[in-house]
Simulated scan of single mutants.
Amino acid sequence: MLNEALKAVEEYRNVLKSNDVNEVNKWISKDFIGYFGYYNDRDYEVYTGASYKLSNVETFESYQGKNTQWQYTDLTSNLRSENEIILSSIIDFYFSGKKVASALAIEIFKKEQEGWKLYRQHMERYSSS
């Protein structure tokens, strides 16, 4: 089951790299909860599945022409249950080859009826460089 879960995570990351927000949003669980504390202009935000998908649409529109890239450095991965994998990673985010953000992320993917979905996500600013 671990290999199946890791394969799903890799598929999600490949979809993320495609910058196709409709495909990315298909990976977000309707029960998603996200805690993001990596912003420079506010403390943190909490997202539900619906609000995160809407935010993704706005965010991906702002990425047009910026050649976005996400670089993951996985720290840990383990099955939390038969149908859930929990991962910790450092995610470096780039615009046109220049790093613009770095976050420490904990992500949980859950196998739902439609397949694996991003179920929980907690991100904190990792470094300022």
Rank of each mutant, 00 (worst) to 15 (best):
M1K: 14
L2K: 01
V9F: 01
R13F: 07
N14W: 02
N14T: 03
V15M: 02
K17A: 15
K17N: 14
V21H: 05
V21L: 04
N25E: 12
W27T: 06
I28H: 06
S29K: 02
F32M: 09
G34T: 00
Y35S: 07
Y38I: 06
Y38R: 09
Y39S: 12
D41N: 14
R42W: 12
D43A: 08
Y44G: 04
T48L: 05
T48C: 05
T48N: 05
Y52S: 06
S55E: 15
N56M: 12
N56Q: 09
E58M: 05
T59D: 12
F60S: 05
Y63M: 07
Q64S: 13
G65W: 10
G65Y: 09
D74C: 08
L75N: 08
T76Y: 00
L79I: 00
E82R: 08
E84A: 00
I85D: 01
L87D: 06
F95Y: 11
G97C: 00
A101C: 11
S102C: 03
L104C: 01
A105W: 08
I108Q: 15
I108G: 15
F109N: 03
K110P: 00
K110R: 03
E114T: 10
R120D: 09
H122I: 15
E124N: 15
S127N: 15
S128Y: 14
S128P: 11
